[in-house]
Simulated scan of single mutants.
Amino acid sequence: MKKSLTYFTAIVLLLSWFLFGSKKLSWFLKIQAEKSSEPCEFQTIFNFGDSNSDTGSMSAAFYPASLPYGETFFHEGAGRSSDGRLIIDFIAKHLGLPMLSAYINSIGTTYRHGANFAAGSSTIMRQNKNYFDGGSPFTLEIQIGQFIQFKSRTGKFFTKENESSFGKHFPKPEDFSKAIYTFDIGQNDMTDVISKMGKEDSHVLISNIVELFSKQVQSLYFFGAKTFWIHNTGPIGCLPLARPIHNAENNQTKVAGYLDQNGCVNLTNDLAKEFNKKLKDEVVKLRAQFLNASLIYVDMFSAKYELFSNANKSGFVDPSKICCGYHEDGYHVFCGSKQTINGTEIVPGSCEDPSKYISWDGVHYTEAANQWIANRIVDGSFSDPPLPISQSCQITH
């Protein structure tokens, strides 16, 4: 794995060569290698995002999730938009930590190893939509505000006198600066940009979204965050409900260049790529601004696109297929819902074997797909710089 050397390190190496010779230099390099390979030993995760990493916020705030959601792993509704675990659940497992409790879920929760502020339908920018129109009150700005309150209140009540009892359920004050701060948000913002095509300048909208994201990261930094693990947005043009086969209102299959070689919508994916490029550029700027912080940019787009491209080889069915829900003839009955169509009540159940599907409900991923993706990002294969998540606290700039 390639390691970036800081300017200071390069100067030290040069001086070591002239002053001490090759033996001392070899010793110095060995020490540096051992230092760079040390795991970070994270004890705490704080996550921010949308339904791709929501472990119960929207379910606690509005309608509780019910079967078939959660059927594979939890065997009950567990507040997740999947049949089982999400990528953030597998990240926590990889780091040897328990699954994160949603911040606003008051029943059966523990925050000793962090909290999850992600909420379904959330965006970076504020939206003029309520929950029933597909919106969420929990924008990234609100999620950051919730974190700041969480840190302030736990710090206020955490004392040496009550450490033995209070510390069982909440992070210690020193854990906040040693925690990893993970992000998976932007997909709903890009969906909103797509809906405004032809009405507003999409390039300006995307720039504004990225700028606001940067401001929220900076807020966290000023409140002590040092390690950031930032996912870009995935190939939303590959999601089944974005494809013409399930989208009668946008059936342009025969238009040249509308779809790519994998059946994904080019325009939608191109906008996601633009967002990702600007996001990566902003992460680079933040690294230059905060030299004592580690900011890891994770190319989720490429990881997920690889899955869509090699579905059959990876043991999955046609990636346009949906495990749970009814999407035919222009009608959409989503997983867990029911609707009467032409006099017939439609109550779609889940497929026989969700582990064979990439898409759970047309928008979200199955547990099997989430695990497949998580296994490929935690080792740093899709990260910039290429650090595994267990070493992501290492500062390489």
Results as ranks from 00 to 15, higher is better:
Lys3Asn: 10
Leu5Arg: 03
Leu5Tyr: 12
Trp17Glu: 09
Phe18Ala: 10
Phe20Val: 11
Lys23Ala: 14
Leu25Gln: 04
Lys35Asn: 08
Ser37Glu: 14
Glu38Pro: 02
Pro39Ser: 15
Glu41Ser: 14
Phe42Arg: 09
Ile45Pro: 10
Asn47Trp: 11
Ser51Gln: 01
Met58Thr: 03
Phe62Gln: 05
Phe62Pro: 03
Leu67Asp: 01
Glu71Asp: 10
Glu71Lys: 14
His75Asn: 07
Arg80Thr: 04
Ile87Trp: 08
Ile87Cys: 09
Ala92Tyr: 07
Lys93Ala: 15
Met99Tyr: 05
Thr110Met: 00
His113Val: 03
Ala115Ile: 09
Ala119Cys: 13
Ser122Cys: 04
Asn128Asp: 15
Tyr131Asp: 05
Phe132Pro: 00
Asp133His: 14
Glu141Gln: 14
Ile144Leu: 07
Ile144Gly: 03
Gly155Asn: 14
Glu161Arg: 11
Glu163Leu: 02
Glu163Pro: 05
Ser165Trp: 07
Phe166Trp: 07
Phe176His: 04
Phe176Asp: 05
Thr182Met: 11
Ile185Ser: 08
Asp192Glu: 11
Asp192Trp: 11
Ser195Trp: 08
Ser195Cys: 08
Lys199Asn: 13
Glu200His: 10
Ile209Ser: 08
Val210Gly: 07
Gln218Glu: 15
Gln218Ala: 12
Ala225Pro: 10
His231Val: 07
Gly234Glu: 05
Leu239Thr: 01
Arg243Cys: 11
His246Arg: 05
Ala248Cys: 14
Lys254Trp: 03
Val255Thr: 12
Leu259Thr: 02
Asn262Lys: 07
Asn276Phe: 14
Glu282Cys: 11
Lys285Pro: 00
Leu286Gln: 12
Arg287Val: 03
Arg287Gln: 11
Ala288Val: 02
Phe290Thr: 06
Asn292Ala: 02
Asp299Gln: 08
Glu306Thr: 06
Leu307Ala: 00
Phe308Arg: 04
Ser309Val: 03
Ser309His: 09
Ala311Ile: 01
Asn312Ser: 05
Gly315Met: 04
Val317Arg: 01
Ser320Phe: 06
Lys321Ser: 01
Ile322Glu: 01
Gly325Val: 08
Gly325Asn: 08
Lys338Ile: 00
Gln339Ala: 12
Gly343Tyr: 09
Ile346Phe: 11
Val347Trp: 04
Cys351Val: 05
Pro354Leu: 01
Ser355Asn: 06
Lys356Met: 01
Ser359Gly: 02
Val363Met: 02
Ala368Asn: 00
Asn370Ser: 12
Trp372Cys: 06
Ile373Leu: 10
Ile377Leu: 13
Val378Trp: 15
Gly380Tyr: 12
Gly380Asp: 06
Phe382Pro: 09
Phe382Thr: 13
Pro386Leu: 06
Leu387Asp: 03
Ser390Cys: 06
Cys393Leu: 12
Ile395Trp: 08
Thr396Ala: 14
His397Ala: 03
